[in-house]
C-alpha cells in the first residue's frame, strides 16, 4: 500500500500544472467529460427520437444521416448510445455512492478502534468477497425484480467492502503519524481525528478507487442489462442494445459494434483518469511509469 501524500502542502497551481502534464490524466479527463457532456446533451437534443420506431429505416448501415446506423426498429444507434450513457453513468455513480457512504465509515471505524471490531469488519469483507459479485448481482436483481434501482443496489453492495478495505488500509497508515499523536495529545477524540486528519489524507486513495469502481460499475451494469436484469425497455441501455444486437450480428454488426465501443471508451477514459490522479497525487508511483 502506498502512503498517501499530504496534498494540502502543495500549491494548487503546481498541482494543476502537473495534472496537465500527465498524459493519462488529460486523455481520461477529456473522455470522461465528453461522455458526461453527451449524456447531459441527450436530455435536450439527440439526432433522432429514440422512442419513435421507423420500421422503414430498420437495420440501416452507418451513413451520413445515421452515423452509427439504425437498429431493427429503425431507431438511430447514435441517439440510443447518447441516451444510454445517462443510464450507465447514473447506475454506476449511485453504486459508487453507496459503496463509499457505507464502506468508508466502516473502514475508518475498523482502523480507529481496532480489536474485535476491526476483526468483524474484515471478516464481513471476506464474506462479501466470497460471493462472485456478478452472480450475487444476478441473484439480487432476479429475486427483487429486474430494473435500474435493483441493479444499483446489487452493484453498490459489492462496492462496500472495496471501500472499507481501501479506507481501512489508508487510515491504518495514517494513525501512527506524529500529527495524529499531537492531535490526541491535544485532547481530540477518535471521531474528530478521523474527520479532521485521517479522511483528508485518504481522500486521494478514495478518489482513485472511486474512479476504478465507477468504471467497474459501468461494466457490471452493462452485464446485467445484457442478461435482461438491468434497466428495462424502452429506456435504451448499452448492455441491452448489445443483447438485441446478438441475434442480428450477421445482418447488422453495427448494432453491436457501437454500443460496445461506447462502453470500452468510457471505461478506458475512467481508468486512465484514475491512473492519472494516482500519478499526480502520489509521487511514489511516478517512479513506476
Amino acid at each position: 500500500m502506498t502512503l498517501p501524500v499530504d496534498v494540502s502542502r502543495e500549491k494548487p497551481e503546481r498541482l494543476v500544472a502537473r495534472a496537465f502534464a500527465n498524459r493519462s490524466f488529460v486523455i481520461g479527463f477529456v473522455i470522461a467529460v465528453s461522455v458526461v457532456a453527451m449524456a447531459l446533451l441527450s436530455f435536450f437534443w439527440t439526432p433522432f427520437d429514440v422512442t419513435k420506431l421507423v420500421i422503414a429505416d430498420k437495420t440501416q448501415a452507418p451513413s451520413l444521416t445515421h452515423w452509427f446506423g439504425t437498429d431493427h426498429f429503425g431507431r438511430d444507434i447514435l441517439s440510443m448510445v447518447m441516451v444510454g450513457a445517462r443510464n450507465s453513468i447514473a447506475v454506476a455513480l449511485v453504486a459508487v455512492g453507496i459503496g463509499m457512504g457505507i464502506g468508508v465509515p466502516l473502514g475508518c471505524l475498523a482502523a480507529a478502534r481496532g480489536g474485535w471490531l476491526d476483526e468483524i469488519v474484515m471478516r464481513l469483507n471476506d464474506l462479501v468477497f466470497a460471493f462472485p459479485a456478478l452472480l450475487s448481482a444476478i441473484m439480487i436483481t432476479a429475486i427483487f425484480g429486474p430494473g435500474a434501482v435493483n441493479a444499483i443496489i446489487a452493484i453498490g453492495i459489492f462496492n462496500i467492502p472495496v471501500f472499507a478495505r481501501v479506507s481501512r488500509a489508508g487510515a491504518l497508515a495514517i494513525w501512527p503519524r506524529e500529527y495524529i499523536l499531537a492531535a490526541r495529545a491535544a485532547g481530540k477524540n477518535r471521531t474528530l481525528i478521523t474527520l479532521e486528519h485521517v479522511l483528508p489524507n485518504i481522500a486521494t486513495l478514495l478518489l482513485v478507487q472511486g474512479t476504478i469502481q465507477f468504471a467497474l460499475g459501468i461494466l457490471a451494469e452493462a452485464s446485467l442489462s445484457y442478461v435482461g436484469l438491468g434497466s428495462q425497455p424502452p429506456m435504451p441501455s448499452w448492455g441491452r442494445m448489445l443483447f438485441e444486437a446478438q441475434t442480428r450480428m450477421a445482418i447488422a454488426p453495427w448494432m453491436a459494434i457501437f454500443p460496445g465501443m461506447a462502453i470500452v471508451v468510457t471505461v478506458l477514459g475512467l481508468n486512465l483518469l484514475g491512473d492519472g490522479i494516482a500519478d499526480i497525487l502520489d509521487p511514489k508511483s511516478r517512479r513506476r511509469s
Binding site: A222, M249, I257, I263
Partner: peptide, 18 residues
C-alpha cells in the same frame, strides 16, 4: 492492456463470434 481492461468480455465474445 489498458484497452483490454476496458473491454466487457461479453462484447468481446460477440466480436469474436462475428
Amino acid at each position: 492492456a489498458q484497452i483490454g481492461v476496458a473491454i466487457p468480455n461479453f462484447w468481446f465474445a460477440l466480436m469474436l463470434i462475428y
